[in-house]
Design a binder for these strands. Structure first.
Lengths: 119, 119
DNA sequence: CCGCATCCGATTGGATACTG
DNA sequence: CAGTATCCAATCGGATGCGG
């Protein structure tokens, strides 16, 4: 693990824009976040919700989000072991960003390919 | 060029969130966009504004943004050749997204490391 | 001045197999 | 169930040099 603070060595790490980008960086990160926006989820539930996502990458994303203080990890003592993840207050701050991404994406689709929506 | 629509083979390309992410993907893309938000910029002006960005990558980003219909490319006939780039109406749609990124990043910095702002 | 071609290193993500 | 370890393929970005 060469870099504790992030996976992408960005030009201006102190810029708030870069901080936000780092938080959602990764091919699956926004989808993981979307699941957690709905509430607490166990490792297995996340795997079931995102079948194409390998356990390794899911672990990496979760660890990274936890390292940034965006998700909280909680293990049940019983058996079988259950680990659940949930957004921290800091992680909740990402909600309006995901909304903005959705709205911008929708606007782009409407502008660059109007009428090309699914039936 | 294996993929015409984007550099990152994302899981759900049709999702508006992914569309928006694809638009700002790339280590320097948001910084290039910020320059263009201020108005039309020539290739050299962009290079001067972002000295650490190589010409190759700048060209790649510009071409990609142009391919997505987000920036417009305009060449002067004279000499020396001058090429200026400016945001299209579609590109202007990214402005609120950049604002959201900035606001979210600021909020994250305040939450996870309060008081740690530059003096 | 603007841009492309080539080569190369670093990073990321996926497949598979194994462990507590 | 919830990871970890290893290997591998694809992608991205940087450096350099040439062309229009």
């Amino acid at each position: 693990m060469p870099d504790e603070r992030g996976r992408t060595a960005r030009p201006e790490p102190d810029c708030p824009v870069e901080v936000a980008l780092a938080a959602i960086a990764g091919r699956w990160t926004t989808l993981v976040l979307r699941e957690l926006m709905h509430g607490s989820r166990s490792f297995g539930e996340l795997r079931a919700a995102l079948p194409a996502l390998s356990a390794k990458v899911l672990t990496e994303r979760l660890r990274e989000l936890a390292a940034r203080g965006l998700v909280d990890r909680r293990r049940t003592a019983g058996f079988p072991v259950r680990t659940s993840y949930q957004l921290t207050p800091a992680g909740q701050l990402l909600r309006p960003l995901l909304v903005a991404l959705y709205q911008t994406g929708t606007a782009l689709l409407d502008t660059t390919m109007p009428g090309a929506r699914g039936a």
